[in-house]
Design a binder for these strands. Structure first.
Lengths: 203, 203
DNA sequence: TTTGAAATTGAACCCGGTACGCTTTATGCT
DNA sequence: AGCATAAAGCGTACCGGGTTCAATTTCAAA
């Protein structure tokens, strides 16, 4: 394997492109920057850029992909799928203060500032929904599993939106993380027990 | 108002475009047809086509837009939001055998055959999620309402997918409608009572 | 019948993304 | 070391969705 000089250069190029992209998007807004400009700023041809990133959206979103399906399939024995996901997101919320706030924040701002990127995020969540449904299925075509997968991803999307919104409004990372943790519990309680008690019966 | 000759011509043109589009898409597939071809087939300039339909997707999807928010805001007094939505979709399922199966089916086939259109459908559902959340909000920033809106739209998306899938597999409209009605009840029961009983506790 | 606004058009243009054929460069083999 | 090969990069031309703009036609109202 030899540590691969070639491999190293590839990763380096990929990072140069991604960094140039994020910098330009942060400066002038996603929709105001063309992929040609990104390529030029990264010192690379447009064709090369698209060899590393399938679409313009991927320049921002590729490094943010989650996968909930894995959390379910690799959960410790004795834990329910919902329990595993709840634990995971609770842990994420509590670790929030540890991550690099600077880079996270600019990425969030870029995403929140562009309808196209927000749509991309939603599409990514849709993709996760199918994977999660497959992971939850107990028998082929299990309707309950599909409904559960759909509801979980919808809930996570909502929580992520709230989290992003607070960050872009200037909330400190620690506080946003704390509130996220609380909301994770609220949301999963609702998933487990339903809305009848907290909503459906009123009015 | 004079019945407006102008207005009539406009609607007529719009219909000519939409029909030409659906016909071509059904014949050769959405991605294999260019908007130029649609415009030509409709006897109209590309620029005119885009005066009527904002995007290529809209050629197929504009006539399918629902709005759940209205169902909630205009529900009869004494009925909960969840109750109103359940009743609406149950009614839709039972009326299914009444609609024009031919045209519905080709549209469904066109949509199901194109990833781009499926993505468009999902985006439309996202849009409805925000409207529904606004309709459900009891106070500004009501988290429960947002979660509920997210889960409802996710559920409806799933049920719609199941319905479409059965239709494209050749199920008769009446049967697909019947199963949809059953699934609507299952799904809304889960929304109201949660997954703990039917899923979360096992394994 | 004139006048003005709305509908329609062709043509040029922008941008994301692809196809193709060519050069360069790391690497594995001898 | 030297060489063949495959991978990485590049330039250019192209495609299709979508917009801009100035020019023209068409309805309708006064």
């Amino acid at each position: 394997m030899m540590a691969g000089l070639r491999e190293r250069k590839k990763e380096q190029t990929r990072r140069r492109i991604a960094e140039a992209a994020l910098r330009l998007f942060a400066e002038r807004g996603y929709d105001e920057v063309t992929v040609n400009e990104v390529a030029e700023a990264a010192g690379v041809a447009k064709v090369t850029l698209f060899a590393y990133f399938a679409t313009k959206e991927c320049l921002v979103l590729d490094e943010v992909k989650e996968d909930m399906a894995r959390i379910v399939t690799e959960r410790p024995p004795g834990l329910s799928p919902l329990g595993a996901l709840r634990a995971h997101y609770r842990a994420f919320a509590r670790e929030a203060p540890g991550v690099d706030a600077e880079s996270l924040l600019t990425r969030v701002r870029v995403i929140s500032g562009s309808p196209a990127l927000l749509a991309g995020v939603h599409q990514a969540h849709i993709g996760q929904r199918y994977e999660l449904a497959a992971a939850l299925e107990r028998e082929p075509g299990d309707l309950i599993a599909r409904l559960l997968a759909a509801q979980i991803t919808a809930v996570i999307t909502t929580l992520q939106e709230q989290f992003f919104h607070r960050l872009t409004c200037g909330a400190p990372l620690a506080e946003a993380g704390q509130r996220l943790a609380d909301e994770v519990d609220i949301a999963f309680d609702l998933l487990e027990r339903g809305f009848a008690a907290s909503y459906g019966d009123k009015s």
